[in-house]
């Protein structure tokens, strides 16, 4: 029983990180019904941006967020305004395929600039742990979890209490009526994507510090995001938090019992079973 405590606690902490990774994807789906297949790659782009800043300016990765966050906001805004807004419509495929194209472009761009080698962002807290009885809490995982919770908290606050957040939700409910209220909907969707990319930027820096990454890692995190969303239900931030923890627990407990080679495999298998039993997700509402 005690041996189980370690993976269980690590799973909860990692779940917080998974939730932030999925946050941008789930909010954009909720708002414009857009499935951004480039989400994982945009997140990894943030990891590389942070790595470059840490390497060349010698700053702390957390400080690099001061640059990475606004850059990613602009990237997201431009991507939505000039590319995705143009293909949003009745059909699901065109925006999906455009995002897919962006994903491929990003991966190969990263490959050109940063080589295929695995990279990681090193920090002083990388190897530190806190001892609690027999349990070791990795400080980095703890930071992931805390920051993850903060991001979710502030994002919820933004969407529920701010003018802009309400306007985004209004535009998501009824574009035509939102225009009547004086909302410039094409800008609003671009801002929503910019905000999704802010969460991706934070997730990217955290992932970069926690795991190694290379140009093709994006899709792996896209699938993790989907996992979180499938379990937690589309468009729900609270669901993303619970989904993140369940997925991480499935992976870590799976690895605990069967060996690390099967960690991802068991995570995916749990996903598929959930998808088959409840296609709208554990906490999602049927449409």
């Amino acid at each position: 029983m005690e041996a189980l405590m370690q993976p269980v606690i690590n799973g909860i902490l990692l779940g917080g990180l998974y939730a932030v990774i999925a946050l941008g994807l789930t909010t954009m789906f909720g708002i414009v019904k857009l499935v951004n297949l480039a989400h994982g790659d945009l997140m990894i782009l943030s990891s590389y941006l942070s790595l470059a800043l840490v390497t060349y300016l010698g700053i702390n990765p957390f400080v690099s967020l001061i640059f990475v966050v606004p850059i990613m906001f602009v990237v997201g805004f431009a991507l939505q305004k000039y590319l995705l807004n143009r293909v949003l419509g009745k059909e699901m495929e065109p925006p999906l395929l455009v995002a897919f194209g962006v994903s491929i472009i990003l991966q190969n761009l990263l490959l050109l600039v940063f080589t295929p080698d695995a990279k990681g962002i090193m920090t002083v807290i990388s190897v530190k742990t806190i001892q609690l009885g027999n349990i070791h809490l990795p400080v980095l995982y703890l930071a992931d979890f805390v920051i993850g919770c903060l991001v979710i908290f502030f994002l919820r606050l933004f969407y529920n209490k701010s003018f802009l957040g309400r306007a985004i939700r209004a535009a998501s409910d009824d574009v035509g009526a939102a225009r009547l209220m004086g909302i410039d909907t094409s800008n609003i969707f671009a801002i929503a994507m910019g905000i999704a990319m802010i969460t991706a930027a934070i997730a990217g820096v955290l992932v970069g510090m926690t795991f190694t990454f290379y140009p093709h890692t994006g899709p792996q995190y896209l699938i993790i995001s989907f996992g979180v969303i499938i379990i937690g239900g589309l468009g729900s931030m609270r669901g993303a938090f619970v989904g993140g923890i369940i997925l991480a627990e499935a992976q870590l407990l799976g690895a605990h019992f069967t060996g690390p080679g099967y960690q991802l495999l068991i995570g995916y298998a749990v996903l598929l079973i959930i998808l088959a039993i409840r296609p709208q997700g554990l906490f999602g509402q049927a449409h």
Binding site: L96, I223, F226, L264, L265, Y268, L272, L275, A276, P279
Partner: peptide, 20 residues
């Protein structure tokens, strides 16, 4: 599994199968 899903979930379901 996947014929219970539609749209994007079908797409992701097929992809996850390949990853598995």
């Amino acid at each position: 599994f996947i014929f219970r899903m539609s749209g994007i979930f079908f797409a992701i379901g097929t992809w996850i199968f390949a990853e598995i």
